[in-house]
């Protein structure tokens, strides 16, 4: 089922000064059966967007469609969407079984039927052993699985995930990413997933919607968002390392640190460029090891440039060198608006 948000506006009145636009004319669509990941820094409005889809926030203007139904005015419980919360939001007084089943009971399903469904769902998520435990007796991963089960039991057509993995430690987070993907594939539900972690977004989203300051600035597949960022903000936000941006008189030029090559320049030549290459001269400011790779900070006349280099021959701090890249790898953005040219 498609989820479509059109022209959404939401602002909060700050105690003093201007109202804050949490959502500023947001239009975005999650296609039926896809996993759309909404990603952005904190305060970009992504959680507000998700809560508006769920009906936990009312919009100042705009509409939310789930399938063919305009749900803008409907209460959260009548929109047919399930939701997984940050920190799991488990009911502390209920057992795992009680947690998974409470929603079914709220929707009027009988006690014994609920019990059967709960057992089924718990089994499918590998928490069948835990049904009698209390939330206080669960590990972080188990809690999150219970939260997923609570959503899955509704066999939802639409499932919303609000930073479901952010409270887990790194190792577990990697494993749970896979489980979220599996779950989506198995249930075929349309999922809208919110995260501030661009790596997580790249890893599990079918498509990404990148948000900045209450606006959606790009919606595309992870590969294309990485390869063709729509704005200089996206270019810096998405990717293992932020894109280098070089400002000057003309348009802003950008190059990914992964595309930069470093050459010895002991003579301290000025920017000497071969045909088909761009480059600049600078001094190594720091070298940060990243496993097989290293991230080198090069100070140049216009600022600092990052380069990701592979192999064993790493430059040392203070080395004079030249950073070069293929002219074809260069991105160009409008100097004022930041939009891709």
């Amino acid at each position: 089922m498609t989820v479509r948000v059109t022209g959404a506006q939401k602002s909060y009145r700050a105690r003093r000064g201007e109202p804050v636009h949490a959502l500023d004319d947001v239009t975005v669509e999650a296609r039926a059966g896809e996993l759309l990941t909404v990603v952005g820094p904190s305060g970009s409005g992504k959680s507000t967007l998700l809560r508006a889809i769920a009906g936990l926030e009312t919009l100042d203007a705009g509409s939310v469609m789930v399938g063919d139904v305009d749900v803008t005015a409907l209460a959260p419980g009548r929109r047919g969407v399930a939701m997984v919360f940050q920190d799991a939001a488990l009911y502390p007084h209920l057992s795992v079984a009680g947690n998974i089943g409470l929603g079914e009971r709220a929707r009027g399903r009988g006690r014994s039927q609920t019990r059967e469904r709960v057992a089924e769902v718990a089994e499918s998520l590998g928490i069948g052993e835990l049904l009698d435990r209390l939330p206080s007796q669960l590990s972080g991963g188990e809690r999150q699985r219970v939260a997923l089960a609570r959503a899955v039991i509704r066999a939802p057509k639409v499932c919303l995930l609000d930073e479901p993995l952010s409270s887990l430690d790194a190792d577990l987070r990697l494993r749970m990413r896979g489980e979220v993907r599996d779950l989506q594939r198995r249930t075929g539900a349309t999922m809208v997933h919110v995260t501030h972690d661009q790596a997580e977004a790249m890893a599990i989203g079918d498509r990404l919607a990148v948000m900045q300051a209450g606006r959606v600035v790009q919606v595309d597949t992870p590969e294309r968002v990485f390869a063709e960022p729509a704005t200089s903000f996206v270019a810096r936000f998405v990717g293992p390392l932020p894109m280098n941006l070089l400002t000057g008189d003309g348009p802003t030029r950008g190059v990914r640190p992964e595309r930069v090559r470093l050459r010895d320049n002991a003579a301290g030549d000025v920017d000497q460029v071969e045909p088909g290459l761009s480059g600049l001269a600078g001094v190594v400011e720091s070298v940060e090891s990243a496993g097989e790779d290293a991230v080198v900070r090069v100070r140049h006349a216009g600022g600092v440039l990052l380069a990701r280099v592979t192999g064993t021959s790493r430059p040392s701090v203070g080395d004079q060198l030249r950073a070069v890249w293929d002219a074809g790898d260069e991105h160009r953005f409008d100097r004022d608006t930041g939009e891709r040219l």
């Binding site: 969407v81 409470l102 709220a106």
Partner: peptide
């Protein structure tokens, strides 16, 4: 009582009575 618990139950479509008797009062018990 954390607000997220109320959000979770609101998404499930629970009535105010259900929310009070199954969430608020038991947690406050």
């Amino acid at each position: 009582v954390p607000g997220a618990l109320y959000d979770a139950l609101a998404v499930e479509g629970a009535s105010p009575w259900f929310t009070t008797t199954r969430l608020t009062l038991p947690v406050m018990a």
